[in-house]
Amino acid sequence: MSRELLKDYAFCVLYTDMMNPTSNKIYREIGYEKIADSVHLGFDKSE
């Protein structure tokens, strides 16, 4: 999928669980590199 996206776009992004060493090793092997950490925030709508 990444290869297909890169035919039309300059880059693509993969969000992954950094605590999973197996999948992250595979992602590095196929050319992905860590560029940033992200945070998911949730807000309680009841207030």
Rank of each mutant, 00 (worst) to 15 (best):
M1G: 13
M1L: 11
M1P: 09
S2T: 14
S2A: 15
R3M: 12
R3C: 11
R3Q: 15
R3L: 14
L5P: 01
L5T: 13
L6Q: 09
K7H: 11
K7Q: 15
K7M: 10
K7F: 07
D8I: 10
D8Y: 15
Y9G: 00
A10E: 15
A10I: 05
A10F: 07
A10M: 06
C12W: 07
V13D: 11
L14K: 02
L14F: 02
L14W: 01
Y15I: 05
Y15M: 08
T16P: 01
T16C: 07
T16K: 01
D17V: 08
D17P: 09
D17S: 10
D17G: 08
M19I: 05
M19V: 09
N20Y: 08
N20S: 14
P21W: 01
P21F: 00
N24Y: 07
N24W: 05
K25R: 14
I26N: 10
I26M: 14
I26T: 15
I26V: 15
I26L: 15
Y27I: 03
Y27H: 14
Y27D: 03
Y27K: 04
R28A: 09
R28P: 00
R28L: 06
E29S: 14
E33Q: 04
E33R: 08
K34S: 04
K34A: 08
I35A: 00
I35Q: 01
I35G: 00
I35F: 07
I35E: 02
D37C: 00
S38K: 05
S38I: 07
S38F: 13
V39P: 00
L41D: 00
G42M: 04
F43Q: 06
F43P: 00
D44W: 03
D44C: 03
D44Q: 03
K45M: 08
